[in-house]
Amino acid sequence: MNERVKQVASALVDAIQKTLTEQRVTEEEWRAGIDYMMKLAEAKEMAVLLDTFFSHTIVDLKAQATRGSRPAIQGPYFLEGAPVVAGALKTYEDDSHHPLVIRGTVRTDDGAPAAGAVIDVWHSTPDGKYSGVHDQIPTDLYRGKVVADAQGKYAVRTTMPAPYQIPTKGPTGVLLEMMGSHTWRPAHVHFKVRKDGFVPLTTQYYFEGGDWVDSDCCKGVAPELVMPVKTEGGAQVMAIDFVIERPREHA
């Protein structure tokens, strides 16, 4: 028996049973709920639903204890094995979105430069899709790895992402609309920062003044993750410094 699984699963079952009783859920409603879960599985949207409604809670708990940068939800579209890029992510040849430069420094929790840290960067296509996941878009588009230099500095060029919707015809989007919520996510860029001997940092950053920043349907936005964007040399520039932490020693 796993005591931790027993503890969490029992609490979850108790909470569901309490809700069923307090809301006086009918058998017809219960059967509709079962049908919904079957549709969720068929649509392969379980990860989407969990990210939409629950992942931000886990991340908020983690953020309370971190000594590093503010974490954020990973989202369901991270892929291992993205190519190492030298200066720029590969984009559509006809991508007309505004150029975006992301740059900054990676440091450790004692302030030292994190030389050689590897930063996975990924974001949506201009039409809100993710490479390697949707519509057979080649995996090497709009995602890649950037390596920090000896001073911990990094820079990568791409194009501005756009806001996009959780699929409105899928089970998650249907549930959001039935609950009176919209299905939009604000434009954002994902990051996963890794270096041997340090806790991986998974986060995402948003654009100050962007649409839906104040009402993300996934509740993933925190004030620390909203960045001002400047214009330099015809490109938008987002400056992001990361801090990664060493594992905590447990007594």
Rank of each mutant, 00 (worst) to 15 (best):
P113E: 02
H188W: 06
K44Q: 12
V118G: 00
E45G: 03
K6F: 08
A148Y: 00
L12T: 14
V106Q: 00
A47W: 06
V85C: 05
V121Q: 04
T105H: 08
D94W: 11
H56T: 09
Q151H: 10
V147I: 15
G128W: 05
P247Y: 04
R24M: 04
L100V: 06
I240K: 12
R103E: 15
K192N: 10
T203N: 06
K18T: 10
H190D: 13
W184S: 12
G68I: 03
G75M: 03
Y206A: 04
T231Q: 13
L12C: 10
G152T: 03
V84F: 13
S124A: 14
D110P: 03
D120T: 11
S131N: 10
D127L: 05
T21N: 11
V193S: 05
D216A: 07
V25C: 04
I73L: 11
V121H: 04
G132V: 04
S124F: 01
R107V: 12
L61S: 14
E42N: 10
D241W: 09
S215M: 10
V85W: 06
A32F: 06
P138I: 05
Q17K: 08
K129A: 09
D216N: 13
L20C: 08
T231E: 15
V25E: 02
F207D: 00
I240Y: 07
V59C: 05
F53G: 03
A155K: 12
I119L: 15
T26F: 08
D196F: 03
L61A: 14
W184Q: 09
H97D: 15
S10I: 00
P83I: 06
I16D: 08
K195D: 02
V174A: 12
T158M: 11
T108P: 06
T91L: 02
W184A: 11
T158D: 08
P76R: 07
K219Q: 14
E224Q: 15
T57K: 10
Y130H: 13
S124Y: 00
R248Q: 11
G180W: 14
V85N: 05
M178S: 14
F242E: 00
D94C: 06
D120K: 01
Y92P: 06
P247M: 04
E93N: 13
K145P: 13
D196G: 13
A150G: 00
C218V: 07
V8K: 08
T202I: 14
L225F: 09
T57H: 13
P167E: 02
V146C: 03
T158C: 09
R157H: 09
E249R: 12
Y36A: 08
D14I: 01
M238I: 07
D241Y: 11
Y206T: 10
M178F: 06
T125R: 01
N2G: 07
I34F: 12
V25H: 01
Q17E: 13
H188N: 14
G233A: 10
T105L: 09
A15C: 05
G33F: 08
L89R: 01
L79P: 07
H190W: 06
T125K: 01
S69H: 03
Q151T: 14
V48R: 00
K6D: 11
C217R: 00
C218H: 04
V146H: 01
V5P: 01
L201N: 13
P99N: 02
C218W: 04
A112R: 15
D120H: 15
I58Y: 14
D216I: 04
T139W: 00
R246W: 12
Y130T: 00
N2E: 09
A47R: 10
V59F: 10
R24H: 13
K129E: 08
Q236R: 12
R67M: 10
T57I: 14
